[in-house]
Simulated scan of single mutants.
Amino acid sequence: MYIKQISVFLENKVGRLVEITDTIAKAGIDIRAVSLADTSDYGILRVIVDNPDQAEKVIRDAGYTVAITNVLAVGIQDKPGTFTKVLASLSENDVNVDYMYAFTGTHNGTAYVIMKMDNLEKGIQVLQNNNAVVLSTDEIYHL
């Protein structure tokens, strides 16, 4: 149920983001979700792609520092308060969310979130017990 996330460390400089996404695109890899966090000097690009192992290789070969991290892709009912309930259930069970970002899909009524937690196994159990759907890799690629 883990999803492989690619993290790329890059200079906060005009054109770096284009270089990375172009490298991924030229390899025929599809980006499914994306997050970019920055400071004044560098950024961390986090992406979910349909071929993470190949993406890691082409990005590394292009000279960038890259890492793969296991995360969860979670589908929750898209209505007010549901997201808060899911977060509260994780908190009540001592599961810390390190970071998260949202992505879109084509299923009406469902919101999707990528979540990195301190305890993924426990997080999966808590999420499933609280009516959240933990998506598989194949499900992510076909949204």
Rank of each mutant, 00 (worst) to 15 (best):
residue 40 S to W: 11
residue 141 Y to V: 06
residue 73 A to M: 06
residue 132 A to F: 00
residue 81 G to Q: 09
residue 62 A to I: 00
residue 90 L to F: 14
residue 101 Y to E: 02
residue 2 Y to D: 09
residue 47 V to S: 00
residue 22 D to I: 12
residue 80 P to R: 04
residue 89 S to K: 02
residue 104 T to S: 11
residue 140 I to D: 02
residue 77 Q to F: 11
residue 76 I to P: 05
residue 62 A to L: 03
residue 141 Y to E: 08
residue 112 Y to P: 03
residue 43 G to P: 04
residue 47 V to G: 03
residue 134 V to Y: 08
residue 85 K to T: 05
residue 97 V to W: 05
residue 69 T to C: 14
residue 23 T to Y: 01
residue 19 E to C: 05
residue 137 T to V: 14
residue 46 R to Y: 10
residue 118 D to K: 09
residue 140 I to F: 10
residue 26 K to Q: 15
residue 30 D to C: 06
residue 50 D to H: 10
residue 90 L to D: 04
residue 59 I to L: 05
residue 119 N to F: 03
residue 134 V to Q: 02
residue 75 G to P: 07
residue 68 I to T: 14
residue 59 I to R: 04
residue 54 Q to E: 15
residue 9 F to T: 04
residue 121 E to W: 00
residue 3 I to S: 02
residue 120 L to W: 00
residue 3 I to G: 01
residue 79 K to R: 14
residue 51 N to W: 11
residue 28 G to I: 15
residue 133 V to I: 14
residue 125 Q to V: 09
residue 76 I to S: 06
residue 26 K to T: 13
residue 53 D to Y: 09
residue 64 Y to F: 15
residue 64 Y to R: 02
residue 71 V to A: 04
residue 81 G to W: 07
residue 131 N to K: 10
residue 104 T to R: 10
residue 116 K to G: 06
residue 140 I to W: 01
residue 16 R to V: 07
residue 47 V to L: 15
residue 80 P to K: 01
residue 86 V to T: 05
residue 23 T to I: 07
residue 20 I to S: 00
residue 33 A to N: 00
residue 78 D to S: 02
residue 140 I to T: 05
residue 121 E to T: 15
residue 118 D to C: 10
residue 26 K to I: 06
residue 137 T to F: 11
residue 63 G to N: 11
residue 82 T to W: 06
residue 94 D to I: 02
residue 135 L to D: 02
residue 103 F to M: 02
residue 124 I to Q: 08
residue 11 E to Q: 04
residue 140 I to P: 10
residue 138 D to Y: 07
residue 12 N to L: 02
residue 91 S to W: 08
residue 69 T to V: 15
residue 142 H to V: 12
residue 7 S to G: 13
residue 80 P to Q: 03
residue 107 H to D: 11
residue 75 G to E: 08
residue 84 T to K: 10
residue 113 V to I: 15
residue 91 S to K: 07
residue 73 A to I: 00
residue 141 Y to G: 08
residue 80 P to E: 06
residue 1 M to I: 03
residue 79 K to S: 15
residue 15 G to V: 03
residue 29 I to D: 01
residue 16 R to F: 12
residue 21 T to A: 12
residue 107 H to V: 14
residue 73 A to S: 12
residue 64 Y to T: 03
residue 79 K to L: 14
residue 130 N to E: 06
residue 60 R to T: 12
residue 19 E to T: 05
residue 122 K to I: 09
residue 99 Y to P: 04
residue 117 M to K: 08
residue 125 Q to E: 13
residue 136 S to H: 09
residue 99 Y to H: 09
residue 108 N to T: 07
